[in-house]
Design a protein around this nucleic acid. Sequence first.
DNA 1: TTGAAAGCGCTAACAG
DNA 2: CTGTTAGCGCTTTCAA
Lengths: 368, 368
Amino acid sequence: MNGKRMTILDVARETGVYYSTVSRALRNDRRIPEPTRLRIRLAARRLGYVPNRVARSLAHGATHTIGIMLTDMQSYFVAPMDEFQNFSDRSNYTLSVHFCSWDQRRERKGLQHFAEGRVEGVIWAPVQWEGPEFVQSIADLQAARIPVVMLGLQRDQQSVPFHQVGAKPADKLALGLDYLLGRGHRRIGIATATNLNGQRGRLHVERLALLRGLFEARGLPLLADDIFNVVDEDYGGFDIAAELSRRAPPRPTAIFALDDFLARGLMKGLRVLGLKAPEEISVLGFDVVGDEAAGRWPLTSVWLESRRMGELAVKQLFKIIRREAANTPPQTIIVPPRIVEGGSVGKNETNSLFLKESHDTDPAKTSS
Amino acid sequence: MNGKRMTILDVARETGVYYSTVSRALRNDRRIPEPTRLRIRLAARRLGYVPNRVARSLAHGATHTIGIMLTDMQSYFVAPMDEFQNFSDRSNYTLSVHFCSWDQRRERKGLQHFAEGRVEGVIWAPVQWEGPEFVQSIADLQAARIPVVMLGLQRDQQSVPFHQVGAKPADKLALGLDYLLGRGHRRIGIATATNLNGQRGRLHVERLALLRGLFEARGLPLLADDIFNVVDEDYGGFDIAAELSRRAPPRPTAIFALDDFLARGLMKGLRVLGLKAPEEISVLGFDVVGDEAAGRWPLTSVWLESRRMGELAVKQLFKIIRREAANTPPQTIIVPPRIVEGGSVGKNETNSLFLKESHDTDPAKTSS
DNA sequence: TTGAAAGCGCTAACAG
DNA sequence: CTGTTAGCGCTTTCAA
């Protein structure tokens, strides 16, 4: 019970064969006849043998693992992770995930761990695209001959020593703005939250600045009063809805909400407060996440193509790992922006807002 | 550039010492004199040598890695993960994280991977506490002599072959209910969402059932109309707020909101709709996550002690790894429930709801 | 202080 | 088809 770990030697001894025969049997080598194989596998199971991947990897020089380095555990990453999983499952690779919590030192250490662990590839959403840690990490990975695909795009597209997959915020915002213009809107408001802490706030600052430029480039006026810059982390959309319902009709006919939470909170708020969307006011979302709901989603939005990005990233990585694109110069894959129109309203809209008493626990069961 | 990976042999050749000297130098063995050590480290860096942890682990038999198996990437796990990171950083261990997306097959495969990779310990939040996969995974881990600490509690406390850390839902609900009773509330409503898909819906079903029992045990009436069972995934709290504001004053004086989202949406909705909390109606949250905000949080709530659970779990695991508790019988650590009162209101409450134009980009910069 | 050599658990090339 | 043997890259005695 509390002895040493079993090795193939133990299994060999138990079954009376040579230990390389055990090794082969356990890997289902067709040269070992079926019955022997079975006998060996059974013995291994009986003894509680667990193969040692450390030794295995050292021997044949492949870890069959890929490393994922992410900034944090945001829902943003759920869809990409799902793609990583699916793809590597199919290829019989395993994922090793690290979150650095926006800490570049942690990021550096984690990547070093990947490099020393000889993962066969890395997908990395960097905290920053510069600085000594960043450069060092790239160097480590290169020295260990580990291919990297970045999630996201570096700002200035110099020739960089890594592949990258991402979307361009400016293109996405332009698409959204032009969509609204195309629908006849001339007074367009912006819902944003530039003052939030951390990355989310920074994104809003960037988006608002870009959007300002786009308004200007199109000769479109942007009234200070039409920038709804909220302070509430998660439910700010509700404040905007309230503010809008307070305003007399010379008001924006559309609101471009610069993130998922804001957009959905705003939609919900408008509905609860009795302002009809899109009849009285239109809402366009940005970077909306819930991707399975595409089409059934009541909100029209510039899509966050995170699933697509994940898919492209992992495919590119495996291309390199499989030497199909070994010495390809690093590629920059840009995901084109896309608008998904709020289609047939989801289930939440068709039914009542509340569930009524009826489908309770079976009374027969409560008697026990 | 595109040659083979460097090994200590290359470094030895480069520096003219024996390769075991290199091994020692790189691990900062004090027997190697300072200057030699430095010379070797420099050469290693120059050559782009990256230590091979696979080989290292095989040689000394320790991977210095712990495996984390989680059901999904929910915010629930952010605080525990943070504790895991902090603790293992300090002990110079690295984390390998897996998410199984509530898929028991994936969970099984991932744990097997951990076992074969000889991680030195596992923290595991199981999808289910039973079934063949569960039993097999436990067996694997035991066969590989890998200690496990579970995140969560098994229902019937049989003597189980693993440590576990968790809280009891019934205790938490009872604490919450008695808190409200203690504040004089007699007509208490419940905000829930039993119809949501996946785990969240299941949790609501469980909580509502438990709470029903607690009401009954205290001889407290629970009106069907006072169960606000919403259908909206994220903003159902708004719907409840709207419904409450519609009702004439013989209505609940307090609402026990059975999850974080519901509670916060409800609070926000009440404020926007002009219903004063807690003067006109009290809200008690449940399993509220935002733990850094403790005290500054405007919402009184039965706390989700996820950080504490994470901390206790990782501490327990390291105790076992360090043999301080090697052959201790598996312990069940129960985190006592706790209510955190919404203290001094956070920054979001003191200021206006909107940010006004003023702190824009420096005009000096726009001129460029 | 450093060199020599054994070995971690397994794979794979080569015989037989 | 199975036994033999040589590593994989590193750590760790044991000598010198």
